[in-house]
Amino acid sequence: MNMAIRAGFTEAIPMSRRRLFGAYLEEARSECLRYLRAPGFMLPILLFPAVFYLMFGVLMVHGHDSAGLARFMLSSYVAFGVMAPGLFGFGVSLAIERDGGLLTLKRAMPEPPGAYLLGKMLMAMLAAGLVVLLLLVLAITMAGLSITLAQGLELLITGMLGVLPFCALGMWVGTLIKGQGAPGLLNLVYLPMAFLSGLWVPLPALPEVLRQTAPLWPAYHLHQLTQAALGLRSGSIFVHAGELLVFTVVFLLWAMWRLRRHG
């Protein structure tokens, strides 16, 4: 034992596969723990979509006797709620960690490649999952929607995967700005995009030019997928999933290139 320990000063000790996997796991665990314990992060992410959904999706729809509208509202607020953990979890934390020196320290330490991003991604997926579950519970108990188990699961999976393009976008924004300016800038992305994608006012009620440009925004495609999960749309979902995948890859690579260049 002692010999092996001494050897560390002269010989490189190989990192076993098991320990490497353990390092990825620890990173993800720490990242999740860290944010789930931060009320300043979790509360707005959970409460904003929940409160908006209760106001516009439950109270306003009530009495209209329109189950279709209530479902549509759920699909909208799920998409709206899923955007936040991605944008803010990645964007704000990256901007603050670049500013506070944590990112530099991580780069100097032998953190396995990609563990930092992977950990944040899992954290965002977990937070997105919580948002979807919360909205589902509200929809079933308060709005009285009947949702099958399959629909609920599809919505949950859509939300957890659907957070990824917003992680990539948030990360890209996080490379543009350092420190406390990030939340403001991200809100300027978040709220207008939600509106332009028809999450607040249904697209048919929007002006022609906004209806035409809506497919430019990833939130629009996510909304199509959440509608499909709730049985509001028929037809192929692959176009929208593909659009989101391309968007994710482009912004992820762009952000990683910027991080490597500008630190």
Partner: peptide
């Protein structure tokens, strides 16, 4: 390093 803000809630 000289300054590194480690995760506050951990």
């Amino acid at each position: 390093l000289q300054s590194a803000e480690l995760p506050a809630t951990l």
